[in-house]
């Protein structure tokens, strides 16, 4: 149990490291937020699973498994929302997309008056 937990922790740390490298390597804000969100969500979840497995037998009389389960649910619910707000704010502030970008339907629809400009609130 202990060893499986440590393997999960290692995989989680690797995922978090990927998030960090992604933040450095990606060309613009939007791609950076993408890599950051996905990799850090799974990294945190994996770390919690690993800790829960390690804590299952050894960490005294309090049982931590349920608490980690609640934490995982909260991370899955809140992490995408906060990143979405970051991304939307970046778009509302008109931070340019990278040169690699092929298509921008959102800008097209704003220009065609299908949609209002996102407000920078």
């Amino acid at each position: 149990m202990e060893i499986i937990g440590q393997i999960f922790l290692l995989m989680g740390s690797f995922s978090l490291m990927t998030a960090a490298i992604g933040l450095l390597r990606m060309p613009d804000v939007y791609n950076r937020v993408q890599t950051g969100t996905k990799a850090s969500t799974l990294g945190a979840i994996m770390s919690f699973i690993g800790l829960a497995l390690m804590a299952y037998e050894s960490w005294g009389e309090i049982n931590w498994v349920g608490r980690f389960a609640v934490l995982v649910v909260f991370i899955i619910l809140t992490n995408p929302v906060s990143s979405h707000v970051l991304m939307r704010a970046a778009y509302a502030m008109k931070i340019p997309l990278s040169k690699l970008t092929t298509v921008d339907k959102l800008r097209e629809d704003i220009n065609n008056k299908v949609l209002e400009e996102p407000k920078d609130e």
Binding site: T18, L97, L100, D109
Partner: peptide, 26 residues
Amino acid sequence: ELVKANIDVTRRVLSPSMPINPGIVK
């Protein structure tokens, strides 16, 4: 899908040529 997403992200981030082709679709 979440695990697939991470394998995908890892592949893109760690490969030297960084195969991305971003865009905003509807």
